[in-house]
């Protein structure tokens, strides 16, 4: 390797300064504000209140804890319902399938749509009285399958997962496809000669070789899931009642009501959860890669 082709270390100084000023510093300031009574009427006078905001979060009758649990639940389930189908779709679309580029485009398209548009479309589709989905079920004489998709407590989360998967599967699939294309076909040919079936190849070739793509998808999915806001806001706005409130919708409401200190405390909790889980996953997956 030519030595003069390696960039000097001082190249990192500029981005590091930008990162520190525009990301690190505001984040740390946010943590500081979470220990204050900063609110809409503070007018520059902000008092240190210790962990009062955190006590409020875990003891108030607002049930912020349910918001935290819902956030974690969403992160877990939304990743499962996206990752597994996306993996199989990617495998399917890697094969010599007629029109596979067309299918790849179709699956990827929803992920470029804005959440607001998706929310408006799906609110209309999922309307109980005259929505497209229930009307179609009625037309097919499947009335027993009609649901109050966005207002029944037993169904509403499933609707959110469904819409989220519809939007996100194509994106996850594309990352898997990139990973799959990097696996030499000779591995599969050798396995076939040895008599391996589809699941053997999946277990012993595809999954181990896809560790990098899985890590990327998991980290992206994890951060997306933990900071989920748009899809919930546009579909249910945290309702019916408070059934689909997540950390960010609560934080948004609290901020809008003028309790900025409390809002930053909620965001700090989210920041901590994201950091801990992110570090754990990256560390675990890195070990897996090294082990292989």
């Amino acid at each position: 390797m030519k030595k003069n082709k390696i960039y000097p270390k001082w190249f990192i100084i500029a981005p590091l300064i930008l990162y520190a000023v525009f990301f690190l510093l505001p984040s740390l300031l946010g943590v500081w504000y979470s220990f204050t009574d900063w609110n809409v009427r503070s007018k520059g006078v902000i008092n240190f209140v210790g962990i009062n905001n955190y006590i409020e979060i875990f003891t108030s009758n607002k049930n912020y804890s349910a918001g935290i649990i819902n956030t974690l639940k969403f992160t877990l389930i939304s990743n499962v319902v996206k990752l597994i189908p996306a993996l199989f779709l990617a495998i399917l679309l890697k094969e010599k399938l007629k029109g596979k580029n067309f299918y790849r485009t179709i699956f990827y398209l929803p992920s470029i749509l804005p959440f607001l548009v998706i929310g408006l479309i799906f609110k209309s589709i999922l309307n109980f009285n005259d929505g497209l989905l229930n009307s179609a079920l009625e037309f097919l004489h499947l009335d027993f399958m009609k649901q109050k998709w966005l207002s029944d407590l037993a169904v509403v989360w499933k609707s959110i997962y469904g819409v989220d998967a519809w939007r996100g599967i194509g994106y996850v699939m594309t990352i898997f496809l990139a990973g799959l294309n990097a696996i030499p076909s000779s591995y599969y040919e050798a396995a076939s000669i040895d008599g391996a079936n589809f699941f053997h190849k999946l277990r012993f070739i595809t999954l181990p070789m896809l560790t990098g793509s899985i890590t990327i998808n998991l980290v992206f999915g994890l951060t997306y899931g933990l900071k989920v806001f748009d899809i919930v806001y546009v579909l249910t706005n945290g309702g019916p009642g408070h059934a689909t409130e997540v950390l960010t919708t609560y934080s948004y409401q609290v901020y809008a009501n003028g309790s900025y200190g409390l809002a930053t405390a909620l965001n700090t909790i989210l920041f901590l959860i994201t950091t801990v889980l992110g570090v754990l996953i990256v560390t675990y997956m890195s070990k897996q890669e090294v082990g292989e």
């Binding site: 019916p240 009642g241 059934a243």
Partner: peptide, 9 residues
């Protein structure tokens, strides 16, 4: 309003 819905549910 959200609380009233939560009560009804």
């Amino acid at each position: 309003g959200a609380d009233m819905i939560a009560f009804c549910q």
